[in-house]
Design a protein around this nucleic acid. Structure first.
Length: 271
DNA sequence: TCTAGGATGAGGCGCACCGT
DNA sequence: ACGGTGCGCCTCATCCTAGA
C-alpha cells in the first residue's frame, strides 16, 4: 500500500526531476557536480554559465531533499583535487518508495551508510557514466546505453554446476558510426592486488566459455579495465600476460586519462 | 507565480611560498 | 626537510531582479 501522498508528489515533479531520481536509483551515489553535468548542461539554450547551472542544480536538489526524495551524505569523497568536496546524493526513503511505485519494483533496497572505499569506487564508476553521456551529447558517441550494478551482473553455471555471478562495474553499449561496441567495464583504483585482477580475468574467461552472452549478442563483449595511471596500466597488462590461459585481445587496460581518446575511437575498440 | 541568472560572500581545500 | 601562512579556486548559500 502506498500512502496517497505519493501520487500527488509524482504529479508535482518535472520530467527532469524524475530523470534525476532514475539516475540516483541506477547509480546510487551521485555528486552535485555529477547531477549538474547530467541534467543541467552548460549550453546556449539551457544554462549559459557554470555558475548558473550549479545554482539551478542546487535549487532542484534542495527542493527534492525538502520533499524527502533524496538525501546527501556527509564526508569527503575521493578524486576532487581542490575546492570543497561537494555533496553526494542518494535516494531518500520517500524517493525510494516513489521509484518503486513508478517502476513497479517489489523489493526494497537497503540503504546503509556506504564505506569510504565503496564511495570512492562508486564515484569513479559514476564519473565514467557521466563522461559517456557527455560524449554522447557532444556528438562524439552516437548512442550509449549503460547498465549499472546489479543489472550488469551475469549469472552462469561454473565448474561442478555451482552458480556463479560475474560482477562488472558497468556494462556499456556504445554506438559510433557503423560500429556497436559492447563492453564489460571494470574501474580499478589500484587498490586490488594484481593476482586478484588475474583471477577476475579468469572469471570473464569462464563466463565467455559458457557462450551465454554470445548466444544473446552474437559476440562476447570486450572487457575494459580503466585504472589510475600508466604505471598501473603497465603492471596490470603484465599481470594479465602471466596467465597463458587468458585469451589475447579479450582484455583492454587503459588509464583514466585516456578514456576520452579511447572512446572517441582514436584507439579503436572491440565489438 | 515560477524559474532562471547576477551578484556576493562564507567556508573548505590544495598549493606555493616563506622562514626556520 | 619541516611547518605555518596566504592565496586562489571551488562549492555552497542567500538575496535580488528579470522574464515567461
Amino acid at each position: 500500500m502506498m500512502p496517497p501522498t505519493t501520487d500527488a508528489l509524482i504529479a508535482k515533479l518535472s520530467p527532469r526531476d524524475l530523470a534525476i531520481l532514475d539516475d540516483l536509483q541506477q547509480f546510487r551515489l551521485l555528486s552535485t557536480r555529477h547531477i549538474q553535468r547530467l541534467h543541467f548542461p552548460i549550453a546556449p539554450d539551457t544554462h549559459r554559465t557554470a555558475a548558473g547551472a550549479t545554482k539551478a542544480t542546487w535549487r532542484v536538489l534542495t527542493r527534492l531533499e525538502r520533499d524527502g526524495l533524496i538525501s546527501h551524505l556527509q564526508g569527503r569523497i575521493g578524486g576532487v583535487r581542490q575546492g570543497s568536496q561537494g555533496y553526494v546524493w542518494q535516494l531518500g526513503s520517500t524517493g525510494e518508495r516513489l521509484q518503486r511505485q513508478r517502476h513497479g519494483y517489489k523489493t526494497r533496497r537497503r540503504y546503509t551508510a556506504p564505506s569510504q572505499p565503496f564511495m570512492e569506487h562508486r564515484a569513479a564508476v559514476n564519473d565514467l557514466v557521466v563522461r559517456l553521456r557527455e560524449l554522447q551529447r557532444e556528438g562524439d558517441i552516437e548512442r550509449v546505453e549503460v547498465e549499472a550494478e546489479p543489472q550488469c551482473w551475469r549469472t552462469y553455471t561454473g565448474p561442478h554446476g555451482v552458480p556463479q555471478t560475474l560482477k562488472p562495474d558497468l556494462y556499456a553499449v556504445i554506438t559510433r558510426g557503423e560500429y556497436e561496441n559492447h563492453w564489460f567495464i571494470e574501474v580499478d583504483l589500484a587498490s586490488e592486488h594484481l593476482p586478484q585482477i588475474v583471477r577476475k580475468a579468469g572469471v570473464y574467461r569462464a563466463h565467455a566459455a559458457t557462450g551465454l552472452e554470445q548466444r544473446r549478442l552474437g559476440i562476447y563483449p570486450a572487457v575494459l579495465w580503466i585504472t589510475t595511471d600508466p604505471p598501473r596500466v603497465a603492471a596490470m597488462r603484465a599481470a594479465l600476460r602471466t596467465d597463458p590461459g587468458l585469451p589475447k585481445g579479450m582484455f583492454t587496460v587503459i588509464a583514466a586519462s585516456e578514456v576520452d581518446a579511447f572512446l572517441r575511437g582514436s584507439e579503436g575498440g572491440a565489438g
